[in-house]
């Protein structure tokens, strides 16, 4: 187990290094000059040249790359060209916003997905099963951005139940402690603000949850159908619905592995989907942070932003792999 962990960690090094290099070259291939972008349309050529020099963009690429890499090792992600603030500090609220959104989405996806899957399997071929599975099929085929727009149309514009966009009510901004607004409002005991935060979360997290929810439901269902063939369950079933909860408990246990797999696989989807969700709901998250940075040719931000997302993604996958081993000793590694 330990040696496996170490091996997995070591294998990450070339991946992350390669990733850094690829991102480094890719963003430099984006047409447009950051110096020009920063100075705006009215800047003179000399001004642009001077700023280019000041930003170190006139140096050879390897100097720039190793400079950046050196910074990474000391935990320095660089400085935003636009705001001139260190990215380490600046990125945190955006990261927290996306994490909060993704976390809520994942919880919704797991809770609804797993339960729907189990119930579908239990009542196989019932109307519930059919409806749930058809919904799940439609769910995996759903473009997030369209779903988001339709949610806005129904719940914000027509029913006026939920706010269209944003993360908080700017009239009464939330005092940030952790930048996870749910936690922040709870810590401060501000229940009024807590509900504001929750209301803002509902639509984007449901939009983001749809695909993973559908996949989890389908996988849980098929896993459960396997499980239900076991003798133990057959006996339980024979005793009727009273046994439902016994089976339910047993089923949950068995659902963990597929759900873990999905969490691993879907993190990328979730982080990617976050860009679209954040665009539609004006959510101040990491996806929009990077997307804006691309528009601004803010090299350090694009680079560090993508790197951080990739590191998170890779790390979650690693944790998932390790959890497999911890949960299910039958899985072997070589």
């Amino acid at each position: 187990m330990l040696s496996y962990t170490v091996k997995r960690l070591l294998s990450l090094i070339p991946v992350l290094l390669g990733l850094t290099l690829i991102v480094f070259f890719m963003i430099r291939a984006i047409p447009g000059n950051p110096a020009q972008t920063i100075l705006g349309q009215l800047a003179t050529d000399e001004a642009v040249a001077a700023l280019t020099k000041q930003l170190g963009l006139d140096q050879p690429w390897y100097t720039q790359f190793f400079h950046y890499l050196g910074g990474l090792f000391t935990g320095d992600l660089g400085e935003s060209l636009r705001t001139k603030s260190p990215i380490n500090e600046e990125i945190w609220p955006f990261l927290a916003a996306t994490a909060e959104l993704a976390f809520c989405a994942m919880i919704i996806a797991i809770v609804i997905g797993v339960n729907a899957g189990i119930i579908s399997a239990w009542f196989q071929n019932s109307w519930f099963d059919y409806v749930a599975m058809i919904l799940a099929l439609i769910g995996v085929s759903m473009p997030i951005f369209w779903l988001g727009l339709m949610e806005q149309w129904v719940f914000a514009i027509n029913l006026e139940w939920l706010p269209t966009s944003g993360r908080e009510n700017v009239r009464a901004p939330i005092e940030t402690i952790t930048n996870f607004y749910i936690l922040d409002t709870l810590i401060q005991g501000r229940m009024d603000q807590f509900w504001v935060v929750v209301k803002h979360l509902v639509m984007p997290s449901f939009a983001l949850a749809t695909i993973p929810m559908a996949i989890i439901a389908r996988i849980t269902r098929s896993t459960m159908l396997e499980v239900m063939k076991s003798d133990f369950i057959r006996t339980a079933r024979a005793k009727g619905l009273r046994m439902f909860w016994v089976v339910y408990k047993h089923s949950l246990k068995n659902a963990i592995i597929p759900v873990l797999t999905i969490i691993g696989l879907q993190t990328g989807l979730l982080l990617g989907g976050a860009i679209l969700t954040e665009t539609i709901f004006s959510w101040p998250g990491i996806g929009r942070y990077i997307y804006d940075a691309i528009n601004y040719r803010d090299y350090p931000v694009i680079q560090s932003g993508i790197l951080i997302i990739a590191v998170i993604f890779v790390t979650i996958n690693l944790i998932v792999d390790l959890l497999y081993a911890a949960i299910d000793p039958r899985i072997k590694y070589n």
Binding site: V15, L16, L19, V23, M26, I27, G268, L269, L270, L271, G272, G273, I275, L276, G287, I290, Y291, I294, I302, I306, I309, A310, F313, V314
Partner: peptide
């Protein structure tokens, strides 16, 4: 695979 795919597509 370490990139979220849509992000990679946007960058490309």
């Amino acid at each position: 695979l370490a990139f979220p795919s849509i992000l990679l597509a946007i960058a490309i």
